[in-house]
């Protein structure tokens, strides 16, 4: 696989949200505003990058039997690091992400990349992989958040859109709106891309994380 392939794979072909349907909790929860989506996307990318780098460096040292606890500790630490930095330097984002900031520690995308990629590849490739999947996640969040903010709140990145501001449909920013917007976007993806087992039949068997969750 070429370097370019590794970098772009996470953005389109294996987009964590639209193709693999991973980490849906933050995808639905923080996407009421485009700004929050960017904040969450960047924070997740930071944690993903950190964990991928460290795990790829330590992959020969970490014994196979305790690799999952090691991932948990490392990922959770990078999450706390991100949380402290955001709280200190970007307080409004810290406020709006709320409990979903510490919950990055349980985001299955990061576990998946650690187990599937960083554990088996060198640092450079792992960095590219993290950047690709981070970008894919951020873009997906941004797409959903843009739709929800524009129609639900009549604004985009806080900038009011004429007419829509006075005719916004609040349902978009509420919980059901999150499910509906994601459903419609996935229907569009279904239409334009070829069959995807996971989107047709979501269960634990098609989950890329089965190797961590289930028994290996």
């Amino acid at each position: 696989m070429t370097k370019l392939n590794i970098l772009t794979r996470g953005i389109i072909k294996e987009n964590p949200v639209f193709m693999l349907l991973l980490g849906l909790c933050p995808v639905l929860a923080v996407t009421t505003q485009a700004e929050n989506a960017i904040g969450m996307g960047l924070a997740t990318t930071f944690v993903l990058l950190g964990s991928n780098i460290v795990i790829s460096i330590l992959r020969k040292i970490i014994p196979n039997r305790v690799r999952i606890p090691c991932y948990i500790v490392l990922i959770a630490s990078f999450t706390v690091l991100a949380k402290m930095i955001i709280e200190a330097y970007a307080y409004p984002i810290y406020q709006s992400l709320g409990i979903f900031l510490p919950l990055i520690a349980a985001n299955c995308i990061i576990f998946a990349r650690a187990e599937i990629f960083a554990n088996k590849n060198g640092s450079i490739n792992s960095i590219l992989d993290a950047l690709g999947f981070g970008a894919g996640f951020t873009l997906a969040l941004l797409a959903i958040a843009s739709i929800r903010e524009i129609f639900g709140n009549g604004s985009w990145f806080g900038v009011e859109i004429p007419w829509l501001t006075n005719n916004s449909a609040m349902i978009f920013t509420l919980a059901p709106g999150g499910f509906i917007v994601l459903a419609c976007l996935l229907a569009v993806v279904n239409k334009i891309s070829k069959d995807n087992e996971r989107r047709k039949n979501i269960d634990c068997k098609t989950c890329p994380n089965a190797c961590i969750c289930g028994r290996t």
């Binding site: 499910f179 419609c184 229907a187 989107r199 979501i202």
Partner: peptide
């Protein structure tokens, strides 16, 4: 297009 996961999400 709505078969599978989109229908479930709705």
């Amino acid at each position: 297009a709505f078969k599978g996961i989109p229908l479930i999400l709705i």
